[in-house]
Design a protein around this nucleic acid. Structure first.
Lengths: 334, 334
DNA sequence: CAATTAAACCGAAACGATTCAATCATGGCT
DNA sequence: AGCCATGATTGAATCGTTTCGGTTTAATTG
């Protein structure tokens, strides 16, 4: 049923090698034969077999993208960006979701090696680093996403979390807030730790007081729960900064339920600027991360590395996040 | 660098065919040789080459999933479900996102054919149906997701939208509401049309009055805008049912801004039960669709079809959506 | 003990493309 | 006319597996 390059060759009355040239280096084949081949392909409805192609040529033109949570809008944007650039360069993107499960992560890595991907984009979990080492041993280029590579032998595209934390506090200070609640996730997550460092740094500079609150998971429900502690705390905070939009949305819900007005009673800022933040009951001010760009650039970098081999220079690119101001913050009035 | 089955064979001092048997039919090889091969594989760090395997065996063990919008939480859940069952059955899932763009859809279809996928899961756009016909011509099984197949030659896994529309209105009527605003998307979308049919059917049964409102796109912003019309309309509606959660969240925001109380002034229901609905400022009552199950079942069906060939019976499975009651609805008080 | 049988193993051929050294045409130049 | 350079085309070898008919080995039977 499926036609091969041989069928095309015989129908067009040329050699198989010529058909292959037509497919890969069209400039090498004369106008007349080109037409013959074209119509033979159309007649037979021929589509080349990627497996055969990869096997012989040695390159799969496939890159893998392994994300920890496909449910997270941040990563779907990354995937869109990576997918689009992959397509534009005639690469196939193999998108895998590990659901934050090291077992699944390992299994996907195995499959990706079987597929002989020529490059991998990954946000590695702690355990996943072993798998990445395996890839290195096989000389498969790897680029970290949203996590900076320590080694200069490794590319990465990440965000400046320190800067993000810092700019949120700076902005609140500029509005006149001097006592801020900072709701962070586990410090074991690199991003959380950096954001906190930025927060504290800015607090010192701007001379504002930070009240720390902690959340175990960065989901909406956790924000909802921690809000009670904020309301009961003795210190009179006038602004709340959350390490993530989901948490901020949870906090927002709790505040509204308790009859508080946003932004009058409390200014509120989130982080990530996921799509829903703009359409929350009170549109959320947030620190936006250019997820699409992140994915697109990462894909472009790994493609460059694949195609330029040894002479490729590894880079650690760090994006600056951007403050997006909406209705959940305003200048403090006494 | 990359080792082949031959290297394994020579190191284990067996024939290549034996190694292949070890990989594919381990029961055929004796205990002693099994061990030799195992350690050779471990020593050489051998991982089989999927392309060679597919080329020779004729089956790629890969299924494609082509979704119109990876950004939509509904589809990421579908993808998780399909991905998990694919993994469990040792299939690879190739996830493609067309961004509702017919051009991208067509391009992805082409790539999927090149990869010689053995089955496709798709939520076809209107234009996409042509591409699907192409797949059929090549005898590649196709299963529709979230859209019922008209032909009995085709499997599908979809939702009963008529039932969903109906049950929302029925529920509102049971709370005492007799005048309901129904905010729908374009009737050209099959799902919207069916839901509306269900709404009207139930309205007649329950003897309640429906006020129709229309939205061009089913995004939050559109809901926000249409809410003004609802507030200004002369008829005294006491409940609002939206064709999708995003729209409902937009409506919710507009109502709150206008000082309305939910659920006291208005009861509000959405559709889809996306994750954010549970953590909206007023947790949203919604019609839940089991997206994960949908994806998982669709994947299982296509795998069955691939493996059982001709003797496979096509099925059109229709799931019943489920009402999830939260804080945005309550019994009407006068 | 010879004959029979089953279990393991062997290894050449094939899958559908790409590669590359070799051949063929064509036209320009002395 | 003869020679060369250039551009097109050819086709056999190859990539890493699976497949499958054939061979070896060991155990069982009469």
């Amino acid at each position: 049923m499926a036609n091969s390059i041989r069928d095309v060759a015989s129908r067009a009355q040329v050699a198989v090698g010529t058909v292959s040239n037509f497919l890969n280096r069209p400039d090498r084949v004369a106008e007349a034969t080109r037409k013959k081949i074209e119509s033979a392909i159309a007649d037979l409805n021929f589509v080349p077999n990627a497996s055969a192609r990869h096997l012989r040529s040695g390159s799969s033109r496939t890159i893998g993208l392994l994300v920890p949570d496909i449910t997270n809008p941040f990563f779907t944007e990354v995937a869109r960006g990576a997918g689009d650039t992959a397509s534009e360069n005639d690469y196939t993107l193999l998108l895998c979701n590990s659901d934050e499960d090291p077992k699944k992560e390992e299994r996907h890595l195995k499959v990706l090696i079987e597929q002989r991907i020529c490059g991998l984009l990954i946000t590695p979990s702690f355990e996943g680093l072993a798998g990445v080492a395996e890839l290195n041993r096989r000389n498969i280029p790897t680029t970290f996403i949203d996590r900076k590579a320590e080694s200069l032998e490794q590319s990465s595209v990440s965000m400046d979390d320190f800067y993000g934390g810092k700019s949120a506090v700076k902005y609140l200070a500029s509005l006149g807030h001097t006592s801020i609640a900072w709701v962070n996730g586990p410090l074991s997550i690199a991003q959380c730790a950096s954001r906190e460092a930025g927060v504290m740094d800015s607090a010192k500079e701007q001379n504002v007081k930070i009240n720390k609150f902690q959340v175990n998971q960065m989901r909406s429900q956790n924000g909802y729960e921690v809000a009670k502690n904020i309301l009961e705390s003795t210190s009179q905070v006038t602004a709340i900064f959350c390490a993530n939009d989901l948490v901020a949305l949870g906090v927002l819900r709790a505040l509204l339920e308790n009859g508080k007005k946003i932004p009058t009673d409390y200014a509120l800022i989130g982080y990530d600027d996921i799509g829903f933040s703009a359409s929350a009951s009170i549109p959320l001010t947030s620190i936006a991360q250019p997820a699409y760009k992140l994915g697109a650039l990462a894909a472009q970098m790994i493609i460059n590395e694949v195609e330029n081999g040894k002479k490729f220079k590894h880079e650690q690119i760090v994006f600056k996040p951007e403050l997006v101001i909406r209705a959940s913050t305003q200048a403090l009035r006494k």
